[in-house]
């Protein structure tokens, strides 16, 4: 039963996530929120591992989440669920390739879809930043859809975390010799900083 649900959730993700691996993140967050299979924090660890291992990020994340929920069968089912819509859509598109490329409705839909996809990833980014760097929590009341702001335990800001984030932001965007390096370099660096400064209990 759980495998069936897993397949369905990832089928939806594969069908509606437009724009590659990172675009699946808001969907994975929503799945975690509605099923309780994993927390934000779990999801971020999975994302970090997915970025640091070979393979497309979106597939790595689907596999990891699936494994987390139902071990190896879960990994297989989640991944198959995520690629099924791709296979169906691409086979259809391939059959009508010419008219697809020249279809103005497709073009127009994507005019709206692209910024929306960025907006969804942006919202996932806000949630993740609040989770990691502050004790602010956004929670919806039972059965409600509007989320309110609440404060979790601990200090309002995670100062060592903010400092590291600032350094990483500069390194990845403005420091010429390092900014083009693969994310795994920065992930490794952050792991070392985390261990040296005991980031788990600030």
């Amino acid at each position: 039963m759980i495998l069936l649900k897993l397949y369905w959730e990832f089928f939806k993700t594969g069908l509606f996530a437009v724009g590659g691996g990172m675009a699946t993140l808001p969907f994975l967050q929503a799945i975690g929120e509605s099923t309780g299979w994993y927390t934000y924090s779990d999801l971020m660890n999975m994302l970090a591992v997915s970025e640091s291992t070979p393979g497309p990020i979106g597939i790595n994340m689907a596999t990891y989440v699936g494994y987390r929920v139902a071990n190896v069968p879960g990994a297989v089912i989640a991944t198959l669920g995520e690629v099924t819509p791709s296979i169906i859509v691409i086979l259809i598109v391939a059959a009508v390739l010419h008219s697809f490329r020249n279809n103005q409705y497709v073009d127009h839909a994507f005019y709206g879809l692209r910024p929306a996809s960025t907006g969804l990833i942006g919202a996932a980014c806000v949630a993740v930043i609040l989770e990691v760097l502050t004790s602010v929590q956004l929670v919806a009341p039972e059965g409600g859809i509007l989320k309110g702001v609440a404060l979790g335990p601990g200090g309002l800001l995670n100062l060592p975390g903010l400092l590291l984030a600032g350094v990483l932001l500069v390194l990845t965007n403005w420091v010429k010799p390092v900014k083009g390096l693969h994310p795994i370099v920065f992930i490794g660096l952050s792991a070392v900083v985390g261990v040296l400064f005991g980031f788990a209990n600030p």
């Binding site: 990172m22 993140l25 924090s41 971020m44 660890n45 994302l47 970090a48 970025e51 960025t118 990833i121 942006g122 996932a124 980014c125 993740v128 930043i129 990691v132 760097l133 975390g161 590291l164 984030a165 990483l168 932001l169 990845t172 965007n173 994310p183 920065f186 992930i187 660096l189 952050s190 792991a191 070392v192 900083v193 985390g194 261990v195 400064f197 005991g198 980031f199 788990a200």
Partner: peptide, 18 residues
């Protein structure tokens, strides 16, 4: 501790992607 550090990095990576 390592993952707590990595999570900060993931925030920055997602931000850069956006």
């Amino acid at each position: 501790n390592a993952f707590a550090g990595i999570q900060v990095c993931v925030c920055v990576l997602i931000f850069n992607a956006v």
